[in-house]
Design a protein around this nucleic acid. Structure first.
Lengths: 199, 199
DNA sequence: GTCTATATGGCGATAGAC
DNA sequence: GTCTATCGCCATATAGAC
């Protein structure tokens, strides 16, 4: 770990902010996590708000751009959907707190979302537009493609954000069993979406 | 508005907590909303934590018990599903910030969830067990019924918690258009779930 | 650049008059 | 029961030594 001080702060902030959100996170906690003093955080990032925005912007754009490759490939639409679902569940599994973090912050302060849309290179708009166009232009379904995307994302994200409740109610709080459930979901969601789209 | 002081506090707290969560809410803000002084909140509810728990427990149990009637009726399973989806979207539409509020707090402090499970009369466990049993015993699907419930809830809840992002990306921030989208969802979700269950 | 010490403000909670 | 005034704490932010 010979990364620069600024990088250490950034990485620590990322971990804490994702776990606790902007309001729940404490500068002291981030300093501890980074193994240094609180004052250094302000030396490098002036304010908590600044630090948060840097982290959020990065997470937001990276989380979306990761899926863009899938849509730009030369697979068939059906194959793209399958790859997308596999990748998306893997991505969330590796960053299980990110979806709720994003949902939280865009609801807490919509202004952040607006600036994100313009400043970030994520262009979630374009990514999802490609997706919509893909489904629509191939006549895979007569249904408003936005409903398909919302259903797909809901089915993928909900098991992560609702995990504490679901795991307790349905799995006797057995973490392993719930992980197994999550891996099964790939095939379930594929089946549901394809059945719906292809009729 | 001739309700008692305690009721006024409770109602104000409910509105503020649902909008801003436990950490985001301020006692001063709740006092303002209730049209009285901050000290009265402590007089009636001793602490912020106490006030929050009273509100959360109530919301949590009411939100679940509202759907129990559906499952206890003498409709067919297919009809129950349809009624459930209609009722659930109506319920969330009338309380659009509640799902995220619940998701947030169960992730923020799992202990609250555990006490809720025992203390509240909601028994979400039993409600959803009835649902699972219903689908399973009627041989409507060979798939683990938990996947069906998670998919169903995800499809219903996500358009509400992801609203700021979705409305901006897909609907040019047009609130009316998004509301229209939400009413359409009833039929979409019914179709998707039934197609999946009935093969 | 990195630290200690401290300023500054806000919030939950309480004391005490009425 | 309801108010004003205030305590005590904690969090962000800054000053200043090194």
């Amino acid at each position: 770990m010979d990364s620069s001080t600024e990088e250490k702060i950034y990485e620590a902030a990322r971990r804490i902010f994702v776990l606790k959100g902007m309001e729940g996170a404490r500068m002291q906690e981030i300093a501890d996590e980074a193994g240094m003093n609180k004052a250094l955080l302000h030396y490098y990032f002036r304010s908590k708000e600044n630090l948060f925005k840097a982290v959020f912007k990065d997470i937001f754009s990276k989380f979306f751009s990761r899926v863009r490759g899938t849509l730009n490939s030369d697979l068939t639409t059906r194959e793209k959907l399958i790859v997308f679902i596999d990748n998306y569940i893997d991505l969330i599994s590796a960053n299980p707190y990110v979806p709720q973090f994003i949902i939280n912050e865009i609801n807490r302060d919509p202004k952040v979302l607006k600036s994100m849309m313009f400043e970030s290179g994520a262009e979630p708009q374009r990514i999802l537009e490609m997706f919509l166009h893909e489904v629509h232009s191939n006549n895979l379904s007569k249904i408003d493609p936005r409903h398909i995307v919302v259903s797909l994302l809901g089915m993928l994200i909900f098991p992560f954000v609702g995990r504490p409740l679901l795991q307790m109610i349905y799995f006797n709080d057995d973490t392993e069993a719930y992980n197994q459930f999550l891996t099964e979901r790939k095939e379930i969601v594929k089946t549901m979406i394809l059945k719906f789209i292809e009729g």
